[in-house]
């Protein structure tokens, strides 16, 4: 197992180098190079500031030295200072935003797991029943729904018409004056809609995926054998079929990281949630180059980690992968 993980880790090295190369090129391909973008967009681009930028990007150095420095900075996650008026370190800004985005995404993955898997299994076991048909139509509609639109509708329904749930931010204005239980309840209420929406796209995909896996497994001989030896359906489904149908789901969860991150930009902007997605959106709107590059690279790292976890998780669950 350790050897497998080691081999798998080695494979990510060329990808890391590729990510660094591509992002390095992107910075230098920006019209006029990094300095001119910085100078055009940043009101405090004084001569001294330019000087600092030249030194920071090492633009007075040969290109391979510049790349070497960029590589070094990426390794230490040092993306320089944000162009925003506060001028803080990009890495620091990202660090304080990541937990929010990750928490919401992990909660929504949990939701996907809890809802999509039973749904997929039941649809497969009762294939072509009314339940299966209705869930198939729902899933297809689910694929097509623009998440930001659904967010608007839910905001209108639960926030404006019914007034049940808050529609912006992570906590209420009076959060600090609440008791401990009140604080927890307040946070939970703010999380309901974002978590639901972050998971929505995955919900449709995962239940569909689970259904087709399950259908595939049910056709296998060993399921027929289990039935033939007189096991009740519940045992066949949960003990024999489900375990094998669940295996590929591990992979899908790991591979869904980039989509979840992309989705975070949308729902964090709509619900005014101070996460990495909102930070990225603000960076794009103000053309904050160091911030954009920083989040882009961090996003790629997180995707890589997701892929890695998917492979390792799969290998842990399925000995055939380790051997192969």
């Amino acid at each position: 197992m350790l050897r497998y993980i080691g081999r798998r880790l080695l494979l990510t090295i060329p990808l890391l180098v590729g990510i660094s190369l591509l992002s390095f090129l992107a910075i230098h391909m920006a019209p006029g190079g990094p300095i001119s973008v910085a100078a055009d967009l940043n009101p405090k681009a004084t001569a001294e500031y330019r000087e600092r930028m030249v030194r920071y990007y090492g633009l007075d150095q040969p290109i391979h030295v510049q790349y070497g420095r960029w590589l070094g900075r990426m390794a230490t996650l040092d993306f320089g200072e944000s162009f925003a008026p506060d001028g803080r370190q990009v890495s620091e800004k990202i660090r304080e935003r990541i937990p929010v985005t990750l928490t919401i995404n992990i909660l929504s993955m949990g939701l996907i797991f809890l809802v999509a898997i039973p749904l997929g299994i039941y649809s497969a076991v009762r294939k072509d029943s009314w339940f299966d048909r209705i869930s198939t139509v729902t899933v297809f509609t689910g694929f097509a729904v623009p998440t930001f639109w659904l967010a608007l509708l839910l905001m209108i329904l639960f926030g404006v018409k019914l007034g049940w749930l808050p529609i912006s931010g992570l906590v209420s204005l009076e959060h600090d004056s609440l008791s401990l239980a009140g604080k927890a309840w307040d946070r939970a209420r703010h999380l309901v809609l974002p978590v639901l929406l972050a998971g929505f796209g995955g919900l449709a995909g995962m239940s569909r995926y689970m259904r087709s896996n399950m259908l595939e497994v049910i056709r296998q001989d060993y399921i027929a054998a289990a039935k033939a030896k007189g096991l009740v359906e519940r045992q066949v489904v949960f003990r024999h079929a489900m375990r094998n149908a669940l295996l590929p789901v591990i992979t899908i969860l790991g591979l869904s990281v980039p989509d979840l991150l992309g989705g975070a930009v949308i729902f964090e902007t709509i619900f005014a949630i101070p996460g990495m997605g909102q930070l990225f959106y603000q960076g794009v709107m103000s053309r904050d180059v160091p911030l954009i590059m920083g989040i882009l690279v961090i996003g790629a790292f997180l995707t890589l980690i997701g892929n890695l976890l998917a492979d390792v998780g799969y290998a842990l669950a399925d000995p055939r992968i380790r051997a192969g």
Partner: peptide
């Protein structure tokens, strides 16, 4: 494929 597509587009 390592870069989240939506991030790439926005950038």
């Amino acid at each position: 494929l390592c870069f989240p597509t939506f991030f790439l587009i926005l950038a």
